[in-house]
Simulated scan of single mutants.
Amino acid sequence: MLNTVSRYYFSASGKHIRPLLVMLMAQATSVATKRQGRTSILVDSDVDRIDYSLMDRSVTQNIHSDGESRRVNQLIESATRDGHGGRPYAPHVKEGLTILPTHRRLAEITEMIHTSSLLHDDVIDHAETRRGLPAIQKTFGNKMAIFAGDFLLARASMALARLRDPEVIEIMASVLSDLVDGEFKQLKNLEDDDAPMAQPDERAFNYYLEKTYLKTGSLIAKSCRSSAILSNSTDDVVEAAYIYGRNLGIAFQLIDDLLDFTVSAAELGKPVGADLELGLATAPVLYAWQEYAQLGPLVARKFSQEGDVAMAWDLVHKSEGLQRTKQLASHYMERAIEALAILPASSARDALEHVTLSVLTRTK
């Protein structure tokens, strides 16, 4: 049952943009300058000498603490024997660009963390649908949805630890803290409950953008950074990968907030206007509020009174809020593309640019 519930959203057609970015960043940084003196046992200038099956070994080859570990290790040994060619743990090389087995595992971990957050979010938000399916708690109940989210986080944490790279483990573990921090920030629309209600000030926008980074940008940014680290990239390349992911992540969420006002539920795969129903003041609302002061009291009471949601919806569409949100997303998109300039020219870098540009035109 736990496996069935945990796989529920994986069976639907998601965007899979996070694992895609990990893989493309792996290829793009595989031909960039390399760092010297790293201590990870899965880093070596000659990748053919590395036993990547260590990623799946729960214990050392000589110690079997329980029957399950023994069976797992036997499966790994069977998969890597002569005759199988070691394919499950072989680097993928195409056009001189390399994706290591550790990159593939990081891509899986990233999607598992993202999906676990969806399971928890849908319970918290009382969601009706997700990816065109009934929300998980509608099918299995709140308890099973929460347990499944916890289970995915646990499995992702185990897989992360087995990458045996302390730097990557620390970076990706901090994502979990960011997700929780972002969820708490989302409970309030403004940092200061006593903030002036005439119109949103700079602090209100900064608070919104910080929440956006924590809930969406952090996972994208830090998984891109970790991908560059697994490529053994120099510090400047690693930092550029992070800057790229951070700006792309914020742009991605800005467009997500815009789509909540502009596309149909069938296109989006979840109800439109959901943010207003949850009492959230996203970028389109904040910009509209600058034009229509009457939005202030609605934001303050989180659109809780009858007619608040409909009024806010109308004012957002009358204002320049949607246009200005797209312009802000375009600004972050341009900063993301600028960060890629440090990487050598390659088909992977071109693909990263293409993914970034497609963020502005997506409809789901």
Rank of each mutant, 00 (worst) to 15 (best):
V175Q: 10
E170Q: 02
A173F: 08
I171R: 12
V168R: 02
V180P: 00
E167G: 10
D165I: 03
E167S: 11
I171E: 11
A154R: 01
A156F: 07
L160H: 08
M158F: 13
I169Y: 05
R164S: 15
M172F: 05
I169H: 08
E183C: 09
F184R: 07
M172G: 01
V180R: 00
S177C: 01
L176G: 02
R162Y: 14
G182E: 10
R162I: 01
R162P: 08
R164V: 09
D181M: 04
I171M: 07
R162T: 09
V180S: 02
F184S: 04
K185F: 15
R155Q: 14
A159N: 01
P166F: 05
R162H: 15
A159D: 05
R155E: 14
R164I: 11
G182L: 09
R162N: 15
L160W: 08
D178V: 01
R155C: 12
D178I: 00
A156E: 06
I171D: 12
S157K: 08
R164F: 12
S177E: 05
S174K: 07
L163F: 10
K185D: 15
L179H: 02
I169G: 05
I171Q: 07
F184G: 03
A154S: 13
A173G: 11
G182S: 11
V175Y: 09
F184P: 03
F184C: 06
G182F: 08
D181W: 01
L163N: 09
S157A: 15
S157R: 09
E183D: 06
L176N: 08
A156K: 01
D165M: 07
P166A: 08
V180Y: 00
S174H: 10
E170D: 08
A161H: 13
D178R: 03
R162G: 14
V175K: 07
M172Y: 01
R164W: 11
E170H: 02
S157V: 11
A156P: 07
E167I: 02
S174T: 06
E170C: 03
A173L: 12
V168S: 09
F184A: 12
D181F: 04
D181E: 10
M158E: 15
